[in-house]
Design a protein around this nucleic acid. Structure first.
Length: 206
DNA sequence: CTTGCGATTCTA
DNA sequence: AGAATCGCAAGG
């Protein structure tokens, strides 16, 4: 499968966050290629964004991956329980990233369905259950088997990458809103940096 | 070394 | 609305 190239990730973070909607996030794991379609993202725009881990140029062991060139993974641990997957964007001088907040299984991708079913220990999955496997940033990592071991990984490699093709699902428009759970971020709480798929009848947000 | 708290999820 | 649960980052 053709992958998004470096140039895609080196662009403006908000643009990348919008354009990642509908793209296929893929992880080769356990002998299966697990592919899901991204339905919700948030942009974290770097040193001037109080909600971003690199705000003010903060550079610690945790934030190191943010200072890589665009197209790398930034995976960090939160709330004592969850790993969250981000796509690093822009140049190495601009520590920005896009948080993947939600996804859904790609129709017809049986490897992914089998993997997700295994993760949830379900026999069969209703459409609602399939959606519920990936409808939060912690669930995206759990569902795809992404952990902190993937922190800093190059998304142009073979194991973890994002497909360049158009969405396999239905057409959608882009919904915009404020980011979730960043109440501490002063003026940045109101930035319209959350993006989600709108499918006419139903939105991909809770 | 200590401590406050978080880009969440699940249950009620 | 609250608990679970622990690494990170800041401060002493």
């Amino acid at each position: 499968m053709e992958k998004l190239d470096r140039a895609f990730y080196l662009r403006d973070t908000v643009t990348v966050a919008r354009e990642l909607l509908g793209k296929r996030l893929c992880h080769w794991v356990g002998g299966a290629l697990v592919a899901v379609e991204i339905t919700e993202t948030e942009a974290y725009t770097g040193v001037e964004d109080k909600a971003c881990h690199s705000y003010g140029g903060r550079r610690t062991r945790r934030t190191q991956a943010l200072y890589r060139e665009g197209g790398h993974a930034y995976v960090y641990f939160i709330y004592g329980m969850y790993d969250l997957f981000n796509v690093v964007t822009e140049s190495a001088q601009a520590p920005c990233a896009v948080l993947v907040r939600g996804a859904r299984p790609v129709p017809g991708c049986e490897d992914a369905i089998a993997w997700l079913r295994f993760r949830k220990e379900y026999g069969e999955l209703t459409p609602a259950q399939r959606r519920g496997l990936l409808d939060g940033p912690g669930k995206v990592c759990r569902g795809l088997g992404i952990t902190r071991e993937h922190n800093g990984m190059d998304l142009l490699g073979e194991e973890l990458f994002i497909g360049a093709g158009a969405s396999l699902g239905r057409e959608f428009s882009i919904g915009v809103g404020k980011r979730i759970n960043i109440g501490y971020a002063m003026e940045a709480v109101d930035f319209p940096y959350r993006f989600y798929c709108r499918f006419g009848d139903s939105d991909c947000k809770k």
